[in-house]
Design a binder for these strands. Structure first.
Lengths: 168, 168
DNA sequence: TATTGTTATACTCTATAACTATA
DNA sequence: TATAGTTATAGAGTATAACAATA
């Protein structure tokens, strides 16, 4: 358990981090802003999935996901095929074109990171990655009200969503 | 120097971090969104300063800073007094009301962080803070000094700002 | 009646550019 | 001519709510 001053300092760094995000976002092509890039990345890593699952992984409302996906679909980078098991659902998957786009993005962002972190040790990069992963998990867990010890496999519940509640 | 896969993983965590930011932003009162909170925090930490200095610390364009500051001034949380040494400039400083507001914000965000990071060790919190500070520095440095390849020596001047260039 | 996904609307943050008042 | 700050405009991301189709 840390002291208040430590949390305040951490908050300041959280706030300052947005400058880093903006800098990384500047190298993105105008037809593929950060929201779109995030979708491509998740599909590349986890493969085809339902809209609801995608929204969950993005931690945004499904309405937001829907917009991002529509944007990418218009450009031919992904397809939305009907889910045979549930006609309300759609399965989102990358097209070959989308995969190529993802490769390009990954290439350029990786290169920028490598430049900026040129004097970071391998271990430091790994440690920052680990701590940010843990940070995300800490926020996700408490959002679902899980006991503060046993970190259940994050995002394990396939039914959990972040969508807008239906009007009752 | 890390490998490409490590940078890709780090990028994913950068992307996921926005969910943490949004969660922290949700507890902010509607009359004091994150941009305003950042200004209050900087003034609380570094004291009164010029608009240009504030923009630099925020790493945003001065036009953005101007809007945030105007928002806060309307609510009586800060004042903009003329700079005696340069009549074009204005010195921004917290009012007692603004200081009180800052205390409230700090209190609530600190508490939320303490809850979410309840099972983090003191050392881990410090380490994450350190690495994020270093991250910001790595990006700031390369923006000013380090010539990665052959970028023109723009912004090398210590007075450099992030403002929109004047129309020539 | 509840859920999946889409769309309309609104709000915040940001950058660019034009403008003013000083330097 | 250049700089400090303001304002207008536009673009991106997000949430809420209302809606259609299906479960």
């Amino acid at each position: 358990m840390a002291e208040r001053a430590q949390y305040e300092e951490l908050m300041r760094q959280f706030s300052a981090f947005s400058a880093v995000r903006r800098e990384l976002g500047r190298i993105l092509p105008s037809d593929c802003p950060s929201g779109s890039a995030a979708v491509l990345t998740l599909l590349g890593r986890f493969g085809a999935m339902r809209m609801s699952r995608l929204a969950e992984l993005l931690s945004v409302d499904m309405s937001v996901t829907s917009r991002h996906v529509a944007h990418l679909a218009e450009r031919g980078w992904l397809d939305r095929s009907p889910d045979p098991t549930d006609k309300r659902s759609r399965i989102v998957h990358l097209t070959p074109l989308g995969l190529a786009r993802l490769e390009q993005l990954s290439e350029s962002t990786t290169q920028l990171l490598a430049e900026r972190l040129a004097d970071w040790s391998d271990r430091e990069v790994a440690e920052l990655t680990r701590l940010m992963t843990r940070l995300r998990a800490s926020f996700d867990d408490s959002r679902v009200a899980v006991p503060p010890r046993l970190p259940p496999p994050v995002l394990a519940d396939p039914e959990a969503t972040t969508r807008t509640p239906a009007n009752t």
